[in-house]
Amino acid sequence: MRETAMRSQKQSSSWLNIGKDFNTMTWVLMPVAIAINMAVGQIVATLRLPVYLDSIGTVLVGVICGPWAGALTGALANTILGLTINPDFLPWWPVAAIIGLVSGICANYGLFKSWWKVVVSGFIIALAAAISSVPISLLVYGGITAGGTGMITAFLVESGRGIVQAVFASSFLTEPVDKITTALLAFAILQGLSKRFLARLPRPENVETDEKISRNQLLIAVGVVVLLILFAIFLLGRLTGAA
């Protein structure tokens, strides 16, 4: 009896429960998140950092409101920003939706509760983003986009890879660093918000941390990111060298 009661409790907070994602706070948060995507992207571009961080608002909504709210935020963000600021965003709306969806699912499974788990989330989000961006890159741009990722693809093609393989490889090389940083930053922001504020949003339990966040964990997280970057560079060398 007790077990079924607990399970039904769990069912209601499951990520499949779409209705739970949307309350008035969610709807008001979504435009703010979309604007945060744009503003942070703009600041990062000004600082000439090798990341975009332009899905930070989407991840925030995914984690604290739920995967469906996150997916909708991502899709609308790319549509709205694509139609008004930079048309480059437009075709990537499915990728943005998947980023929101996957970050929500990760959070639902407790992967936004400590620094190292957030790194894992960031990696999973990156994989999902990379896989979903390949067909769009191929269909819309014929594989070679106008940005940094396109450069790497071009480089790989030049060194003898097939175009599909090159698109896959370049996506997998660029996404993890960006998405792990994004996830960590989103986590830092959520930690800085008051419990009172978070309680108004649909899924505050997703960021309830039981253990104290220690400095060591943060250092480990940063270490993992650095290792990943090194690994990516190594991989890039191998891929081009092998040709």
């Binding site: 008035t24 706070m25 709807w27 008001v28 948060l29 703010v32 604007a35 945060i36 503003a39 942070v40 600041i43 990062v44 600082l47 000439r48 950092l49 961080l53 930070i56 930053l185 830092a188 922001i189 800085g192 918000l193 504020f197 108004r200």
Partner: peptide, 29 residues
């Protein structure tokens, strides 16, 4: 220095706009 520069730049922007969310939700409700 630029990496270290992200948080002080992004922090005030994000927190400021998130705090407004609650009041706006009340206003439209």
């Amino acid at each position: 220095r630029r990496v270290g520069g992200i948080l002080p730049l992004v922090g005030p922007l994000v927190f400021g706009s998130l705090v407004e969310v609650e009041e706006r939700a009340i206003a439209i409700e």
